[in-house]
Nucleic acid binder design. Structure first.
Lengths: 192, 192
DNA sequence: GTCTATAGAGCGATAGAC
DNA sequence: GTCTATCGCTCTATAGAC
């Protein structure tokens, strides 16, 4: 890909991400994506061989970002500080515009069910969960409840990320506190 | 509607709800709904004048259930017990199969953006939020953060509801504890 | 209340010119 | 790298028989 003359692919991914997030995968047509790029939909087929490949490329971007995050996390000593920093960086991701991909995945959007790449992405999410709450959260004895806590922690960052895009960034800080609290084993769920 | 000979409408709503939840509104065709009822899609047009009207009917079911819940809540003394019972009953709703509609709404599914009924449903969700966390949560000074907490509390019940459908009902109890904790002003978000 | 048949539009995708 | 034109398909929705 080095030495390419145009940035159409890159722009297409940005446009597609935004549209997929707003209208869903099935609700987004190639015409809509093409119009956002001021080209025709036929031209899109020079860059991608199918609509599904566009989705795959978008997912791949997200996958890469999370993979980097996990790699960083694995090299840190495990502890509350690393946990918090992992969540903070993940939150930054969602603010930076990867929110949409994250939303696509977290909501378990139907389009992803048949997507080969989805398995890889899901594996990475699980790896992130393991990093956040110890290996085997999703399969352990109190797995369902532990998993619920991690999912909620991630949800907090996603919801705050959407909010933060239209103003107040301090919601993100509050969300980070809530997320850490949800993963804190000392706080069992009921009030002190 | 009293005295109707068949229950096709009722069955159609059940089938549509399940399909909308699994494949999304745009990803669900009338053919799919019709096949689930063992009739042809043309026959659906005897009961509904458009696909959107099917969605409206499904939303209306959900809306009615939440309206009943709110009416009950408003007649109770406000306090932690009522709050908890509100959340518990809402959780029961999502287990009973209204999950899908709830998911549709909470995820802000694109199909709902242009749906007239969506405004009404959204207003009811806001009313529920007010009941849960005091009037004006969504517009107050620390509105964004308070709103985030309520959204997460609801999310906990939705996520647990999906889990509970395939076995372990005690996840629901744990989710209820977490939801109450999230709405507890004493617990500010950070660990003790 | 359900059927067959079909209209009319939009979709994803391809062919081939420039 | 982008275009016009078009194919084949599925979709929502309607008309009219039973």
């Amino acid at each position: 890909m080095a030495g390419r003359r145009t940035d159409t692919r890159q722009r297409a991914q940005r446009v597609a991400l935004r549209l997929f997030a707003e209208y869903g995968y099935e609700g987004t047509s190639l015409r809509m994506i093409a119009e956002g790029l001021n080209i025709t939909k036929a031209a899109l087929y020079y860059h991608y061989k199918s609509k599904e490949e566009i989705l795959a490329a978008v997912l791949s971007d997200f996958s890469g970002a999370v993979a980097d995050l996990i790699e960083w996390g694995e090299q840190q000593p495990s502890g509350p500080e690393t946990q918090r920093e992992l969540l903070r960086r993940y939150g930054e991701l969602t603010v930076d515009g990867v929110t949409a991909a994250a939303r696509l995945i977290q909501v378990n959007e139907p389009a992803l069910r048949e997507q080969p790449l989805a398995a890889e992405v899901q594996a990475q999410i699980i790896a992130l969960f393991d990093l956040l709450a110890g290996p085997g959260v999703l399969t352990g004895a109190d797995g369902p409840v532990a998993a619920l806590r991690v999912k909620l922690a991630i949800s907090a960052l996603h919801l705050a990320g959407e909010e933060a895009e239209s103003g107040g960034r301090d919601v993100m800080d509050a969300a980070l506190d809530i997320a850490c609290g949800l993963l804190d084993p000392q706080w069992a769920g009921s009030a002190p």
